[in-house]
């Protein structure tokens, strides 16, 4: 069965003062119905650009999709007209951003904003839309939804607002939900509630979900599979269990080891990844991780590794961890 969403060898470039930056370079991924894929990576690795490309929201200029394909439900998206894309975004693909206020209009009540979506995309009457809006607010755990429905965004706390955005995203029962750092701006107790909510809704509604985060803890808790991005590329993809237990890419392992954890015994020093991420405008030849990689080989500087099966995961590496251990 073909995946609900498949991104194939996607490249996106941005024109900047200093030259053309290829923000993502050959990204491929798949998400199936009912599945949650975690997209992790450090700042600037291309997570948001990937999601914006899927949503047809790459600002152009300065950006453009240079090559590759995005197939959703069998249909190729990059050639779609603005109007067709807009329709798709309202109904079938929904997005949640880090900062809920970007998705909410401060001058309308939350109820009227949800009703607006319901009437436009689901063709509900005014009365039915209001009733459904209250149900949705209830479903995302907002107390006293029949009162909150008439409040303005600024009257709600950050966590409440993000719930409203989730309610709005889910109002049309989308097939695909893209959540870009949906809990990064929230406190840890609220973050836990919102993550549980997203995971529960994905399961209940069979929604395919892409959860973008820089927090590996979040991935471990709510995702089925994960793709790790580095410098505009996906360097490893696999089931979450394998990614954490038997990562094949040295970068994935380095990342996992460098997270401080709550544990009984204090660890003296944290393992670190030396160096910093290279500049997109000044990339090294061959593997982009080479300058920081503890197990680089001669050929890593001359050839580009491609995603291939190693152990239980797909990794783009010439000397994956299972090989290096031999």
């Amino acid at each position: 069965m073909a995946a609900l969403l498949s991104v194939e060898d996607l490249c996106v470039e941005f024109r900047t003062d200093k030259g053309v930056a290829r923000a993502i370079d050959g990204v491929s991924l798949e998400v199936n119905a009912g599945e949650t894929l975690g997209l992790v990576g450090e700042s600037g690795s291309g997570k948001s650009v990937t999601s914006l490309a899927i949503m047809g929201l790459i600002p152009s200029p300065p950006g453009r999709i240079v090559s590759g394909d995005i197939r959703f439900n069998g249909q190729s998206l990059p050639g779609l007209s603005q109007g067709a894309y807009r329709k798709l975004r309202g109904r079938e693909i929904a997005m949640i951003f880090q900062e809920p206020m970007t998705a909410l209009n401060p001058v309308f009540t939350v109820g009227s904003q949800i009703c607006d979506v319901l009437r436009r995309h689901m063709g509900l009457s005014r009365k039915a839309a209001r009733k459904r809006a209250i149900e949705l607010l209830d479903e995302v755990g907002i107390p006293a939804p029949d009162k909150r429905v008439d409040e303005y965004p600024h009257q709600l706390s950050g966590g409440m607002r993000q719930r409203v955005v989730i309610a709005m995203a889910l109002s049309c029962d989308p097939k695909l939900l893209i959540a870009d750092e949906p809990t990064t701006a929230l406190d840890v107790t609220i973050q836990a509630q919102v993550l549980d909510l997203i995971a529960k809704l994905a399961k209940d509604h069979g929604t395919a979900t892409i959860l973008i985060t820089h927090d590996l803890g979040v991935v471990a808790e709510v995702c089925d599979r994960a793709s790790v991005m580095y410098c505009g590329r996906i360097v490893e993809t696999g089931d979450v269990g394998d990614i954490f237990d038997r990562p094949e890419h040295p970068y994935t392992r380095g990342l996992i080891q460098s997270i401080p954890r709550i544990r009984d015994d204090k660890l003296g020093r944290l393992p670190t990844i030396p160096g910093i991420v290279p500049d997109l405008l000044d990339l090294p030849d061959g593997c982009r991780y080479r300058d920081r990689c503890p197990q680089a080989l001669e050929r890593c500087g001359n050839f580009d590794p491609r995603l291939e099966q190693h152990g239980n995961t797909l990794a783009a590496c010439f000397n994956p961890n299972s090989e290096a251990a031999k």
């Binding site: 840890v188 836990a192 927090d215 590996l216 803890g217 471990a220 237990d245």
Partner: peptide, 18 residues
């Protein structure tokens, strides 16, 4: 607060106190 911290280990499913 402690129970809400996401644990970077898929084998431990944390038991959150809501």
């Amino acid at each position: 607060l402690m129970s809400a911290v996401p644990v970077p280990d898929p084998k431990t499913k944390s038991r959150r106190i809501m």
